[in-house]
Design a protein around this nucleic acid. Sequence first.
DNA 1: TAAGGACTTAACAATTTCTTAATCGAATTT
DNA 2: AAATTCGATTAAGAAATTGTTAAGTCCTTA
Lengths: 233, 233
Amino acid sequence: MNKNDIKILLVDDEPDILEIVGYNLKNEGYEVFTAENGLEAIKAAKKHLPHLILLDIMMPEMDGIEACEKIRKIKTLENVIIAFLTARGEDYSQVAGFEAGADDYITKPIKPKVLVSKIKSLLRRLKSESAAEEDNLKIGDIMIDRDEYVIYKSNKKIELPRKEFELFSLLTSKPGKVFKREAILDTVWGNEVVVGGRTIDVHIRKLREKIGDDYFKTVKGVGYKFVLKGQDK
Amino acid sequence: MNKNDIKILLVDDEPDILEIVGYNLKNEGYEVFTAENGLEAIKAAKKHLPHLILLDIMMPEMDGIEACEKIRKIKTLENVIIAFLTARGEDYSQVAGFEAGADDYITKPIKPKVLVSKIKSLLRRLKSESAAEEDNLKIGDIMIDRDEYVIYKSNKKIELPRKEFELFSLLTSKPGKVFKREAILDTVWGNEVVVGGRTIDVHIRKLREKIGDDYFKTVKGVGYKFVLKGQDK
DNA sequence: TAAGGACTTAACAATTTCTTAATCGAATTT
DNA sequence: AAATTCGATTAAGAAATTGTTAAGTCCTTA
């Protein structure tokens, strides 16, 4: 991911902090948004879909903990990284904060250099998390073994070639969700690769052949989605 | 839910595993119970009502599969999450009873960090299952699911073709507001596309057919608006 | 280097979606 | 009341999109 594409939402009730920290982050090339309280933060987060949110704990209107909990429930933000800004020595808040779903803590006073390096490492986690998930997953009567590149459908082993596996993997990562053709190409083939218009269809065909027609639903003009039998109503 | 209130039942016949994994989980703040075989597991599960059960597959007395099936039948435990512990590379098709009702699989050797993050995500599922349906737009008895490209009217699923969905989506984005024909064309069709004068009407017709006449009100000389039943006066 | 699998492409069939055109009806204006 | 305007309705067919098959290329492996 390009650094310029990384969006950071900075939330603090002290304008001075917003300005100083914001300046430093912009200087590093990040796109920075700000908010002065929890309510604003949630609005801004929904609007800008940042990758990272730096959240002050003590704020008027809605404090950081509460804001964090609310944000964690927003689906479009499920992968956002949230770090709390706390005054040194506020031990109790750490407990509450981790429960609320925070990924990290940064203690005030904030040293710009420390902050930037911390952010870099947090964002590294963002990448590795999406790349990882190299684990097993069970959906209905289908199990996916990402280590072995194999899936099991009611105890029957089905081996899939790489592209098919990745396509299947993508679709099942969010059963029910429609993946747009464009998004599928981006994820499975990579943004640079250009393949013909029928390539996806052919792979879907193979999956339908091997796993079952009913699991893969076409949404014309949009893309495909994976549905579990009987859940399509 | 407070982290300290979360109970995990760990079942494995190797004391080493119980100790190491148990230690890590306790360290994370979970309340941990252990059992060395399926029989003990069932007893312990009934007694402690854990939120999550980590179940080794290969065990003496009663293996994990059988235990899982039995546990699934216990009413007081109907919401428990069960994850199997399996050796890496194990052929799951040989693991009879793959459909015993496990929610997930975790492969050995178990890396504490992976395990903990996995558990967090499993428990997140626990929460989200009860508080789901967060992000979707609800208007009266109609729900719009943009992820799945479907709408639900009093829980009945209605699938709409793309243009209809987009038109519907636009109108419902501000119930009561009149959208001018021109504006509709701009949004749904795009400014460049030129279509005949009756195209919008036809699409409105389809929506009325599928969703109900009363929801779509014509404002002659201007455009259309979406209204909830009985609210257009 | 022959065989086989994975992946892509191309051609055409099948299907769904969208638009058009024609006609009707209601409301409004002349 | 006649004429006009605007929307409603319908069915047909145009256009867009996907399905399917077969063949070709590339790469790996025996």
